[in-house]
Every structure is written in structure tokens, then in C-alpha cells.
Design a protein around this nucleic acid. Structure first.
Lengths: 183, 183
DNA sequence: GACTCATATGCAACTGGTTGCACTGCATCG
DNA sequence: CGATGCAGTGCAACCAGTTGCATATGAGTC
């Protein structure tokens, strides 16, 4: 279960409250492991029970009290243990692929439209990633340590979107050509 | 929910029993939408309730009775309706990416080892896909109709694995180089 | 004065997928 | 003769992620 471990990583970088963590999460981890505040609160609770994080209740004035979480020695050990165990492969389940597979029973133009939409949203995402790369990782690929790790993750995102764009182009082209042939 | 629709597609290609469907599913759809027989039986039940498929109990001798499922007009309409609605984008959640992100708190060599394993399994999968392409789609990319659709799906798989391999290489290289610098 | 936004936490219900197990009966292999 | 495998269907429990709602306070806006 990677959410717990993604939280451990985030909390090791900086301890904080569930709320604050959720904010930060949305700005970094969520690109490859999205999580709602709900999920984060629930998971933090479970992690505290297991002793991976310690909780400190911090009373505040003018705003609700908060609980700040910090990674314990057990949490650090768990993170290290987990990161050494084999990473399972997952098949990304994509509705669009299913639709292409069943295109014979569908309105091809509607599927082409979805591919175009997907292409555009991937191009947008790619642009955002490229901007982050320019802004935050000018030294790439000659980076070291944590900056290197973060850049490698960003690279995965960039590759994913590039690939998506190319496949969508292939798809749109092929389906359109096939439509043309039929008419 | 794409499983229901993937089943509709499969059943439109050929009606059959849950068992038989599960077998076929494993040989085609499962590459991009894996499903256990459990899930298939449960989903078929729900689909029958909704009237998307009709059920016929077929008594058999020497082996257990079976239920064959066939897509109804309502099922065909539903498939068409669904294929026209916008396809949601999903973020593939990959443990390995999380591990890379938190590599500073882990054993880098263990992560490199996992990347190598991933690279190999992707190379294997790619080889299998390439073989299918050679064997079943010699006419690509000049295909039409259902063969074209199936090939486009296969292309998505090929692209995915190629991309994975390249990223793993980048990863292994960069992490090793960084390790070297430190020592 | 009402509305939204930011801070802060949480319960409850639901959905989709995974895992483990159960039962029948024939065929095949060592 | 026993184990394995194929054909066939299914229940029950669990796990992770999603969605909707609830609650509290203060600051700023229309």
C-alpha cells in the first residue's frame, strides 16, 4: 500500500498537520498518487495506531486546533523495509482503450473526439511538466540526491504524456483514414 | 464502469458462458483490463438484472450446467451510449515511482534492482506483444475495421512497454551515476 | 447581512477490485 | 490409486479509493 508510504516520505521531508500535508500532497505526490483529504486523514489515523507516526495536538486561536504528525523510528524503518520489497506491476485501466477495442459497436467519430480531447489534456499536462522542469530542475540531468529523484519522477510524467500524445495521434489518424475508406 | 462494457464488447463478438467469457477475457481484454472470474460472474449477474444481457441455462451432461449470456438490444444501446460519453483520465498509481520519489530514505541499490526487474518484465511483455503483432496483424498499419481497432489497442500496449523500458534505463543509469558520485 | 474562502478534522455510505474458499465431476498423467 | 487440471458457478470478507455531508471559526467580499 503505497499511500501510507508516500505519506511517510512527505512527512519525512517536513512534519505537519493532516490539512497541511494534504495541501503539499496535492502539489507533488498527487501527480502520480492522487489522494483526497479524506483518504489522508483516514490513513494518518491508521498510521498513528500502528506507531509509524506520532501525533501532537496543537491548540490554536482563531482557527480550529490541529494535529501535527511526525514520522517515528518505526515509521522510518517501515519506509525502508517497504522500499526494498518488490514493486508490483499494475495495469493502468483506461476506458478509452476499451472503447477503441469496441469501436465497431460505437460511433467512431465520438471516439475520435475523445481521443482529441485526451490529446489536448495530455499536451496541457506535458506543458505544465515542462515548465516545472525548466523552473525547478535547470541542472538536469546532472542533478544529485533528492533533486535527482524528484526529476526522475517528473521524467516519468513527461514520458507518459508524450507517449499518450503520440498514441492519440496514431489513433485519430488511423480511425479517420479507416472512416474515409468506408465512405 | 468499463468492465461491464468490456464484457458487452466481448459478448457481442461471441455470446457464451461466464466461464468461457473469463477464458477469452484473459486472452484479450485482460492486457488492458484484467478481471478475475469472480468479478466477471458478479458483473454478469448485475448486467442480467439490468437487462443488458439475457441468460439461458444450458444443462450439460458429464459436466456442470452452464449459463450462456447474450447481449440484448438494451445492452447494445448501453454500449453505444457509454462509448460516446467522455472517457475519464486516470493516473496510473505505480509503487515504483513512489519509491523513486522517496529514494533518499531507502536503499538505492534495492530500488535499482526493482527497476531492473521491471525493465526485464517489460521487455518480456514487449516481446510477447511484438509476436502477437507479427502473427495476428501482418497487414498493419494498413488494417481496417475490427482488426484495426485491435491493433491500435496492441499499439498502446507496445508503446507502454517501450516507454517503461526507456524510463527504467534512464532511472538505473541516473541512480547508479549518483551513487558513484557519492562514493 | 449573506456568501465564499481558508483553516482544520472527520463520519458514513458506496464502488470496484482482490483473495480465499467451496462444491461437482470427468479426464489425464505418473 | 492419487494428484492435477479443466469445466462450471458462486459466496463472503476485505481493501483502497470516491463522494457527500457535517462542523467550527475568522477574514474578506458583494
Amino acid at each position: 500500500m503505497a499511500l501510507e508510504h508516500a505519506i511517510l516520505i512527505s512527512l519525512r521531508e517536513r512534519a505537519g498537520s493532516g490539512y497541511e500535508l494534504a495541501q503539499r500532497f496535492g502539489r507533488s505526490m498527487a501527480y502520480f498518487w492522487p489522494a483526497t483529504h479524506q483518504q489522508i486523514y483516514r490513513t494518518l489515523g491508521r498510521m498513528a495506531e500502528q506507531g509509524w507516526v506520532s501525533v501532537t495536538e496543537v491548540p490554536q486561536e482563531g482557527r480550529p486546533d490541529k494535529k501535527t504528525y511526525a514520522v517515528t523510528a518505526a515509521g522510518r524503518a517501515e519506509l525502508r523495509r517497504w522500499s526494498g520489497e518488490p514493486a508490483p506491476r499494475v495495469t493502468p485501466r483506461d476506458d478509452l482503450i476499451v472503447k477503441v477495442r469496441g469501436a465497431a459497436y460505437a460511433d467512431i467519430e465520438a471516439i475520435v473526439a475523445q481521443a482529441q480531447e485526451r490529446r489536448e489534456s495530455s499536451a496541457d499536462q506535458l506543458e505544465r511538466y515542462r515548465e516545472i522542469e525548466r523552473r525547478d530542475f535547470p541542472g538536469a540531468p546532472g542533478l544529485t540526491g533528492q533533486a535527482l529523484h524528484q526529476w526522475l519522477v517528473l521524467r516519468a510524467g513527461i514520458r507518459l504524456e508524450e507517449n499518450e500524445i503520440e498514441w492519440c495521434d496514431e489513433l485519430i489518424d488511423a480511425l479517420r483514414r479507416d472512416q474515409g475508406v468506408k465512405e
